[in-house]
Design a protein around this nucleic acid. Sequence first.
DNA 1: GTCATCATGTAAGCCGTTACATGATTGC
DNA 2: GCAATCATGTAACGGCTTACATGATGAC
Lengths: 214, 214
Amino acid sequence: MKKRSHFLDMAILGVLRNRDLHGYEIKRQIVDELGLFTSISFGSMYPALARLERLGLVEVTQGRPRGQLRQAPFTGSLGGERAIAVGLRVTGGADETRSRGKKVYTLTEAGRGTFSGFVNDDFDHGDDDLAFRVRLAFAGALEPEMRLKLLERRRSSLEARLNKGKFSGSRSILDDLYAKCVIEHTQSETVNDISWINELIDSERRRISEHTAQ
Amino acid sequence: MKKRSHFLDMAILGVLRNRDLHGYEIKRQIVDELGLFTSISFGSMYPALARLERLGLVEVTQGRPRGQLRQAPFTGSLGGERAIAVGLRVTGGADETRSRGKKVYTLTEAGRGTFSGFVNDDFDHGDDDLAFRVRLAFAGALEPEMRLKLLERRRSSLEARLNKGKFSGSRSILDDLYAKCVIEHTQSETVNDISWINELIDSERRRISEHTAQ
DNA sequence: GTCATCATGTAAGCCGTTACATGATTGC
DNA sequence: GCAATCATGTAACGGCTTACATGATGAC
């Protein structure tokens, strides 16, 4: 049911939620800043964007040249418009569709809806690390109770993992020092994750009760 | 260069290093006990075994029925032989190659060599988590100095990751609370990993110096 | 003026997942 | 006897990686 590429799609829509960006920068943010995927090749990034465009979830506008996006968001209006003009001039020869200028992607209303469906959906029973990380990264788009649900589902899935590990760890491999070492480290990572989730749940609850109190 | 499937191959050869096992059990050990892959489908497990067999890295012997492998390795001789006979009798009708009895895989000498090449090889610059976990799990097969090298390479790659995160974390996404939260947790996981590696390196050094001292 | 980086894409091939198909064994 | 689990496989489909191809920009 749930294809892996859905997470890439979701991450793309997620970073486009607040900002219009071009493909190269989208990849940079997903991989280098959010660290959601260890790597994404352009061979999967650009086709993904094309797919999303076909589905009407993003729109393409001919982009401003490099450098304008990063610095001085204040100068946007003047500098930005000029930049777009420059961009069009450079690429605006005969061969319009093949122009290699930067393509800036904008989330459409449909895209917003799909993204919202993504983060809210229960479709995976919380057993996938990647699914959780991606959802949490964009959990700002969720209702507080959904956020709490997400976290609690994650916690119970981590606890299940921990218990499974306790049972299975005691058989054939255990005589190998290094294998054991890897197993134990995995377990301790899970324990860490659980207490992290617990903190998140606590602060989420605090925030909710503060909100309903005042 | 390095295909993902190589890690599955390596893990298979690794668990077969000390024990002859059948496919289902190999998968159980790799996934449930070692936790090296979050999941492997049989659709990739069995083809992998077939590939390794074609390459002469593993050999297939018709297996004993279920239950014999887990309990009482002592009774092996008598119980085992009888079991093999039973296994053959059950499936040994007309359609010999199609027999669906358990297939028990044994590592060949060539397989041992390939496995040894796997763990020792430097071919990846240490930037892949999976590669490291798999190597460490079977690091018992390494010379102490190679083990130390493996750990030190891992440490420097984690430190690089940490530094990269410090630089890139401070730009556009940072206004989002949950994105920030994911980023910080990733960083703290890396810090944890580094201190874990440091402990391993220390105990490895201690072991080496003890060994050369006595 | 050239090199590194930014920027976008296409095509091939691999491989892993999914779904399907079969059958043995164990526990109830 | 029936269900769940153990156990092994095949075929199709999708998508990711790799390699290739192109070109602009900025720094030195």
